[in-house]
């Protein structure tokens, strides 16, 4: 078979549109933001170009750092929950009978068919005091209350108190898990799908239990998929601004909201640009961490 690497002309032709696209619509805007980040805010909120590190100095002051730290924290928690939910889900899809796989995958992807904003508003409808969840709880409460009444203990349950589920950090985490779960499941599923099941059979045949097989065979072999999925979910959570904006409370500001504030009402694009780059450097650091961990763990065996 002919090596595609040999036909350089064809390769270049096919690459050109994507390269052009990335250069024009990704690299150039990024470069502009980078230049802005050394600029100064004019009195009317104009961006005045300069060579100043003041925006970066401001970005690493205590309060922005605190917000960044909080963002890392919320992203970590939501990613861990995503992994705990997503791994069994990906396994379920990957190990399902062949005719079930596509419908199951479709269910995972289905949320993408609706706009993120609409889906987040739906969570407001679920979580608020007069929302569907509290409605369901009240119904169950009434049922139990009636039940206790029947066995001669009326009023045992007391009056129903709706739960305050919305406008706090838990609501933000719920929203982030919901939004990012498919991003974790899909790469994980791709890896699990390619996993040679005979390894698992060998492990089970040789006396290891299901748990041992899972932790000693499945998990190490699917590490690249786990890493990609976790990374995707984490980075998406870290930079989010819509979810905390709509579901968060008074202390749910994440770094994405701060950046949006600088580009929006405060009209301080230079500071916003510097914050964006600080966020990007943090993301790069996470990617670098992943690369070093991957190179160290390559001895365990890539599933490939």
């Amino acid at each position: 078979m002919e090596d595609w690497r040999k036909s350089k002309a064809a390769f270049a032709i096919f690459m050109a549109p994507a390269t052009f696209w990335l250069l024009l619509f990704f690299t150039v805007p990024l470069a502009i933001i980078w230049v802005y980040s050394f600029g100064e805010r004019g009195p009317q909120g104009q961006t005045e170009l300069a060579v100043s590190l003041e925006n970066y100095a401001r970005a690493v002051e205590w309060i922005p750092l605190k917000i960044l730290w909080k963002s890392l924290w919320i992203a970590t928690i939501s990613t861990v929950i995503c992994l705990l939910l997503g791994f069994p889900l990906a396994m379920g899809v990957a190990f399902a009978p062949k005719r079930w796989k596509n419908p199951l995958l479709l269910i995972v992807i289905l949320p993408f068919w609706t706009n993120l904003l609409i889906r987040t508003y739906a969570w407001i409808a679920i979580l608020r005091i007069s929302g569907f969840l509290n409605f369901g709880l009240e119904w169950a409460h009434g049922l139990l209350d009636a039940g206790f009444g029947v066995i001669g203990m009326p009023g045992l349950m007391g009056e129903f108190q709706p739960l305050e589920l919305l406008y706090n950090n838990s609501a933000v985490i719920v929203g982030l898990v919901y939004v990012n779960l498919p991003f974790l499941v899909l790469p994980l599923y791709a890896t699990l799908e390619k996993l040679d099941k005979s390894y698992l059979e060998a492990s089970l045949d040789l006396g290891a239990g299901q748990w041992r097989t899972f932790f000693s065979v499945t998990v190490p072999l699917t590490m690249p998929g786990i890493a990609s999925g976790v990374l995707l979910a984490f980075i998406l959570s870290l930079g989010t601004f819509l979810t905390p904006d709509l579901l968060g409370g008074t202390d749910s500001m994440m770094i994405g909201n701060l950046i949006a504030q600088e580009f929006g009402p405060s009209r301080d694009w230079p500071f916003g640009s510097a914050l964006s780059f600080v966020l990007m450097y943090v993301t790069f650091f996470v990617l670098w961490l992943r690369a070093t961990v991957a190179s160290r763990s390559s001895g365990v065996g890539e599933a490939g």
Binding site: P43, Q44, G45, I63, P64, K66, I67, T250, D251
Partner: peptide, 20 residues
């Protein structure tokens, strides 16, 4: 009314409120 350069005072106060 727009407060020009003093917008930063409001911006930082607001961020401090959010982070508190």
């Amino acid at each position: 009314v727009d407060v020009g350069d003093n917008t930063r005072l409001y911006d930082e106060a607001w961020t401090a409120i959010q982070a508190a």
